[in-house]
Design a protein around this nucleic acid. Structure first.
Length: 904
RNA sequence: GCGAAAGUGGUGAAAUGGCAGACACGCAAGUCUUAGGAACUUGUCCCGUAAGGGGUGGGGGUUCGAGUCCCCCCUUUCGCACCA
């Protein structure tokens, strides 16, 4: 049955077949059992698994197995984020059909996942590009349309000139395309938007629920992205007009220091107010220039503040001062009110602007902290301080030069002045967010069609629910021009109006793929449902997700959208909680060494597999040779695995050489999951070595553990145990290891869990070596030894399942358990239980310090009392030599741990 | 510029305020051999023959005791970047 040698290929194939045939990982909702929903971020089917995927799924699988062995009903599904640009790029560049391309990729990647032996319930597999899935994207769109949560508007969109497509704000963050890095331009198009801002407040507030289970980093990023800001709005009446200019400010306390009102170049009032004025045309030109400049600005570039005086004046409602109205490039139309009051003395940007245009600077806040120097100038209250002030003073302080508000503190003034503005009707408190609504229209083919029809008589008409899905046509003409490909498919475009039945045209845009991924893990709970996105009861059982695992790159977009989607689903009555994901683990990147040569034209990178590294006596890398020509290559930086640096490794090749189990063990052992994982070929060798040692030990002992001929049935014999320390010691190690590994799993510290198993293996090997010397021992000894060994080996094998499931199943079977690890559990909890009594050390080694320095060690019984420990420490000969001739000031005794003698 | 996180052997790393470096990789010496990309044994933070001393980016502090807590600085990584 079991081979003497460890042949991963054979074992892995055997158990993968067994799992599949026995439906080992297929689960159903069962209200009688506690559930655990373990989820990994679904992959885009690019065609090939990379090491990042391997890491992601190895982490998830370890946890899923652990929870299963602890008796949980574990939902562990997978699917495909199969809409999106690469399929369409392939269509444009190589003329392949996106659907066929996608399906082939899925088939290939599914095989790769199966070779890794990840324990998915494959019956629940979903794919975004299939009509039975995207039907529900469209259904959600209609639901949101009914509730006014999606709307259409003409909007300057972020446009990637390289990929000819619209990008969301998030996707164009920093002014570059998130995927290809091209400079983003602006273009006006009719777009569909999801009103994410309607939930802005909740998206911030509910983060309190996530503090426990989400990385602080992710919460910070989301908070920064939403950027809730409280302040006030104030209306400034325009002189000689009935119009008012509204500004938003967080520092209404500085309003007496305003020297101008500054509008964004796109501000709608400009055109209105300057109608017929000669300046109007100049301003329009200025606005155009600013816009063009903005589109072409490089990510790190500092843009100089430019502005134009409009000649208009607005009245400060607090003091009736007439302020000039400017237009400037640094004011943004889509934040706050699109206009600001410029207070140069107390705002850095306004200060810079005032400097650039030699505007007066008036100080209205005086510093109150005495330990802080006023920022570089002596306050000359009431004067223009533009010559003295070297930088803006943005701290809170005491109001000066502010009429009746003078001498108040900033914080109080903000509250009172906001109330005043509200009472007088020219302002009030306001909260703004940086978060924008989510533009979901894409001029793309490979996505879910927007279920909307345009009728000449009825206007914008939603498709009837019964008519869903609006199916994508088989193909379209892929020109790559940025025009929606669907617009060229007459059979698709031409339809009839759902309301009046007359000829009408369909929306030819498709939805952002983040729509698909916003709710996919709800669909896993009920993937075949034809009448609803999912059954409410099934989802109520399985969700929320207990543990989500994926890359940090989704910290904002995906994870924010899915939080929004959850709240929307709650409000349409599908679910009853606020947050979809209880615990989030963001795994680090997989990185590797790079090797290169600088050739005449370019830098040529060589794959680490083709390079031989030389080391010195300390193990430091001294040089590297390319194996093929035996000449040196330069050792480069450690970088994320990528094509451009040619430092990637192919999971398939790794599995071929070492087996899936070893790949998984190494992946989890080499670093904690949040850290970068540095791929190392020798590291994976170590993983194989470890598995081989365990396997060899099982092979050696497997038959004899049940063998009655030597001393009878293996069993514990209390007398033997009491008298033979090595037997007690192995039991102790076994139970200590169980406690450690269990605890490590709860903290998701897989690397230390594996280290603990390695230690147990070392202890087992030592014990095994001892057995040579006790051949003549009495039968009771052997019976007990076998019992102790069985206990150690079985615990080790079960705890190894989450990391190396194939090898562990094989070894479990050879230890005499038929039917597989899960089946043989028969509803029992298979995970071993640590017996605290057995794990307890009998004797402790207590370090003794003198003035904090280690001076001796005491061997004492584990239950030694505090006073006895103190006496023993003081009596220790070595310790005494350090204490002699000095006064003992204090003796600190930490029970079970340490003694520190303080002397003078 | 703003914000966050992190700095520990040659490397990946470990350490509820209590023996710094577990477990591995690499390296060194050795054993065996069917000479391998095997297995096993031993050693491996630094200085020192040793006794001993030093050591967790640097500096200060709290404490009987600090890799761990607090303050300042340096470096690196990540996120945001005219958000009023």
């Amino acid at each position: 049955m079991m081979d003497e040698k460890y042949y991963p290929e054979k074992i892995e194939e055997k158990w993968q077949r067994f799992w599949e045939e026995s439906g080992a990982f297929e689960v159903e909702a069962d209200s009688g059992r506690e559930k655990f929903y373990c989820l990994e971020m679904l992959p885009y089917p690019s065609g090939f698994l990379h090491m990042g995927h391997v890491r992601n799924y190895s982490i998830g699988d370890a946890l899923a197995w652990y929870k299963r062995l602890r008796g949980f009903n574990v939902l562990h599904p997978i699917g495909w984020d199969s809409f999106g640009q690469p399929a369409e790029q392939a269509a444009i560049k190589r003329g392949v059909n996106p659907r066929e391309w996608t399906e082939e990729n899925i088939t290939h990647m599914r095989e790769q996942l199966k070779r890794l032996g990840i324990s998915y319930d494959w019956r629940r597999e979903t794919a975004a590009h299939r009509p039975d899935y995207y039907k529900w994207d469209q259904w959600f769109f209609l639901k949101m349309y009914e509730r006014g949560l999606v709307y259409r508007r003409l909007s300057p969109v972020n446009w990637c000139p390289n990929e000819n497509t619209v990008l969301s704000n998030e996707q164009s963050s920093g002014g570059v395309c998130w995927r290809c890095g091209a400079k983003v331009e602006k273009k006006d198009l009719e777009q569909w938007f999801v009103r994410t801002t309607q939930y802005a407040e909740e998206l911030v507030a509910d983060m309190a629920e996530l503090e426990e289970g989400w990385p602080e980093r992710v919460l910070t990023m989301q908070r920064n992205w939403i950027a809730r800001s409280t302040g006030a709005f104030v209306d400034f009446p325009v002189k000689d007009s009935t119009e008012k200019i509204r500004v938003f400010t967080t520092r209404v306390d500085t309003i007496y220091g305003a020297n101008a009102i500054v509008l964004a170049p796109e501000h709608p009032l400009l055109a209105k107010l300057l109608e017929g004025s000669t300046l109007g045309a100049d301003i329009a030109r200025f606005a155009d220039r600013v816009r063009e400049r903005r589109a072409n600005v490089k990510p790190d570039e500092e843009v100089e503040k430019e502005g134009m005086n409009t000649g208009l004046f607005a009245t400060n409602p607090f003091n009736d001062e007439q302020l000039p109205v400017w237009v400037a490039n640094y004011v943004l139309m889509d934040y706050g009110a699109g206009a600001v009051m410029s207070v140069p003395a107390h705002d850095e940007r306004d200060f810079e602007f005032a400097q650039a245009h030699t505007l007066p600077i008036k100080q209205v806040i005086a510093p109150v902290t005495h330990d802080k120097e006023p920022s570089g100038f002596e306050p000359q209250l009431g004067e223009d301080v533009s010559t003295e002030m070297l930088s803006a003073m943005t701290d809170y302080g005491m109001l000066v030069n502010s009429g009746e508000w003078s001498a108040k503190l900033s914080q109080d003034a903000i509250t009172e002045m906001t109330a005043h503005a509200e009472k007088k009707g020219f302002g009030g408190g306001a909260v703004t967010y940086r978060l924008r609504d989510w533009g979901i229209s894409r001029q793309r083919f490979w996505g879910a069609p927007v279920p909307i029809v345009y009728c000449e008589t009825c206007g914008i008409v939603p498709v009837l629910e019964a008519e869903l899905p609006v199916k994508l046509p088989a193909t379209a003409e892929f020109t790559g021009t940025g025009e929606s490909p669907l617009a060229g498919v007459a059979e698709f475009v031409n339809t009839t109006c759902p309301k009046c039945d007359r000829p009408a045209k369909r929306d030819t845009d498709t939805m952002d793929t983040f729509v698909d991924s916003s709710w996919y893990f709800f669909r896993y709970c009920d993937p075949q449902n034809g009448g609803a996105p999912f059954d409410k009861e099934k989802v109520a059982y399985w969700t929320p997700v207990d543990q989500y695992i994926g890359g940090i790159e989704h910290a904002v977009m995906h994870l924010l959208y899915t939080r929004f989607w959850t709240k929307m689903m709650r409000d349409i009555g599908l679910i009853s909680f606020d947050e979809p994901i209880k615990n989030l683990l963001t795994q680090g990147m997989v990185v590797a060494e790079t090797f290169y040569r600088d050739e005449a034209e370019e830098r040529v990178f060589y794959n680490p597999a083709d390079v031989q590294v030389e080391r010195d006596a300390k193990g430091r890398i001294t040089s590297a040779l390319l194996v093929s020509d035996n000449r040196a290559v330069t050792v480069g930086d450690i970088e994320k695995m990528s094509k451009s640096t040619n430092n990637g490794v192919d999971p398939n090749e790794m599995i071929d050489s070492y087996g899936a189990d070893a790949v998984r063990v190494f992946t989890l052992f080499a670093a904690p999951p949040e850290n970068e994982l540095r791929w190392s070929e020798s590291g994976i060798d170590g993983a194989v070595r470890f598995l081989r040692r365990v396997y060899g030990m099982i092979w050696k002992w497997r038959g004899t553990l049940d063998d009655d001929s030597l001393g009878g049935k293996p069993q514990t014999n209390e007398t033997v145990l009491r008298n033979i320390p090595e037997l007690r010691a192995l039991r102790q190690t076994t139970h200590r290891t169980i406690a450690r590994v269990t605890n490590d799993f709860e903290r998701l510290h897989f690397n230390t869990a594996i280290a603990a198993l390695m230690e147990l293996m070392n202890a087992v090997a030592d014990f095994d070596a001892l057995q040579k010397g006790v051949a003549e021992a009495p039968p009771e000894y052997h019976a007990t030894a076998r019992f102790v060994m069985r206990e150690a080996l079985e615990a080790m094998v079960v705890m190894l399942v989450p990391f190396a499931p194939h090898a562990a199943e094989e070894m479990w079977e050879s230890l005499g358990h038929a039917g597989g690890m899960l089946q043989s559990a028969q509803g029992e909890v298979r995970w071993p239980r640590a017996d605290a009594e057995l794990a307890r050390r009998e004797e402790l080694e207590i370090p003794v310090q003198v003035n904090g320095k280690l001076r001796g060690r005491l061997r004492v019984a584990a239950d030694v009392g505090e006073e006895d420990l103190r006496q023993a420490a003081l009596a220790d000969e070595r310790v005494r030599s350090f204490v002699a001739g000095r006064d003992v000031v204090k003796v600190v005794v930490v029970p079970q741990r340490l003694v520190n003698i303080v002397v003078r």
